[in-house]
C-alpha cells in the first residue's frame, strides 16, 4: 500500500531530483513505477482495454512526469499531480483505441504495487520508436538505456562533449513523448 509516508518520500526524492540529485530522482521513478503500473492496469481493465496496453501507458506517464515536472509545485502534495497525469495519459490511450471511457483513478494509497510482468509487458516495439529519432539521438538513447553507459562514457565513446550529449538526450525525450502520444500520425 502507498502510505502517506511513501507519498511524502516520493515528494522528497522528487524535490531532490529537481535540485539536480539524479540518484534521488531515479529512486523516485523506480519506486513510483509499480504503483503507476497497478493503476494503469486497473484503468485498462475497467475500460475493457487489454491490460497489455498498460505498460505503454506507464512509459508514457513516466516521460510526461519527467518533462512536466516543472508543473509540480514542490510545496503541494505529489499524489494529486501524479493522478491527473496518469488519468490524462489513460484517456489519451483509450481515445487512440476509439474508446471514450471515463477514467476514475484510485487514490494511490489504495493501490498495491504491481511488478513488471515480462510475459505481457514491453510489447511496444521499442526499435520502431527509436528508429524515428535522429541518428545521433538514437545512438545516445541506446547507449544510455540499453547499454547502461552514463552520459560521460557516452560522450567519450561518441567523441562528443557531455553538454552536447545532454542536449541531444533531452531533445530525444521530447520526441519520444510525442511519439508515445501518437505524434507519428501527425504532420511533424
Amino acid at each position: 500500500m502507498v502510505s502517506r509516508d511513501r507519498e511524502a518520500q516520493w515528494a522528497e526524492w522528487m524535490r531532490a531530483g529537481i535540485r539536480g540529485d539524479s540518484q534521488a530522482y531515479h529512486r523516485f521513478l523506480a519506486d513510483v513505477t509499480p504503483y503507476l503500473r497497478a493503476a494503469a492496469r486497473r484503468g485498462c481493465a475497467r475500460a475493457s482495454v487489454p491490460v497489455s496496453e498498460a505498460e505503454d501507458v506507464v512509459q508514457d506517464v513516466l516521460i510526461a512526469l519527467h518533462l512536466k515536472r516543472g508543473s509540480w509545485d514542490p510545496a503541494r502534495p505529489l499524489g494529486p499531480w501524479l493522478q491527473v497525469i496518469l488519468r490524462h495519459k489513460l484517456i489519451d490511450a483509450f481515445r487512440r483505441r476509439g474508446r471514450t471511457a471515463s477514467v476514475a483513478i484510485d487514490d494511490f494509497a489504495e493501490l498495491i504495487a504491481a511488478p513488471q510482468d515480462e510475459a505481457i509487458d514491453d510489447r511496444r516495439d521499442a526499435m520502431r520508436l527509436l528508429r524515428q529519432l535522429k541518428e545521433g539521438q538514437q545512438e545516445i538513447v541506446r547507449s544510455i538505456s540499453l547499454e547502461g553507459q552514463d552520459v560521460r562514457e557516452t560522450a567519450q565513446r561518441l567523441n562528443m562533449t557531455e553538454g552536447a550529449v545532454r542536449v541531444a538526450l533531452h531533445r530525444a525525450l521530447k520526441t519520444l513523448a510525442r511519439l508515445y502520444h501518437g505524434g507519428q500520425n501527425e504532420n511533424g
Binding site: G20, L62, I63, G70, Q116, R124, H170
Partner: peptide, 19 residues
C-alpha cells in the same frame, strides 16, 4: 525499450527543470 531502461534514460537527463 523496457521500463527499467527508460528510468535510466530519464534520470540521465539532467537538463535543469524550468518551473
Amino acid at each position: 525499450m523496457k521500463t527499467d531502461e527508460l528510468l535510466t534514460l530519464l534520470s540521465a537527463d539532467t537538463a535543469p527543470v524550468r518551473p
